[in-house]
């Protein structure tokens, strides 16, 4: 639910794939989108959406970024950067 995915190929370059997949590629073009957000936009529950995304991943159509591991998340410099970014947001 908290991983992000993004298109590895533009939707326009993948006309031969199912329409549902093209929709996903369009939704995840750009800096990446959380699986939870994608599922909501597709009006699907999380698990079916994740199954669908796994198929696209297998085909190399999307990239996947898992949630950060604990050591990364607890890195104090990273936490400070988030804080200062949030302050400016």
């Amino acid at each position: 639910m908290h991983s992000t995915v993004r298109a590895a190929v533009p939707a326009d370059d993948a006309r031969s794939i199912p329409e549902e997949w093209q929709t996903i590629l369009r939704l995840c073009a750009g800096p990446g989108i959380a699986v939870a957000e994608l599922a909501a936009r597709l009006e699907m529950r999380l698990t079916p959406a994740a199954v669908l995304l796994a198929q696209l991943l297998e085909q190399g159509l999307i990239e996947h970024r898992p949630p950060m591991s604990d050591p990364d998340a607890m890195n104090i410099d990273f936490l400070r950067r988030i804080r200062s970014g949030l302050e400016r947001a």
């Binding site: 957000e37 529950r45 990273f78 950067r81 988030i82 970014g85 947001a89």
Partner: peptide
């Protein structure tokens, strides 16, 4: 059971905060 979450996000320069 089906559970529903609210999802929101805040894009920062270093990360995307995902609020559940």
């Amino acid at each position: 059971t089906t559970v529903a979450m609210d999802f929101g996000r805040i894009t920062l320069d270093v990360a995307v905060l995902m609020l559940f």
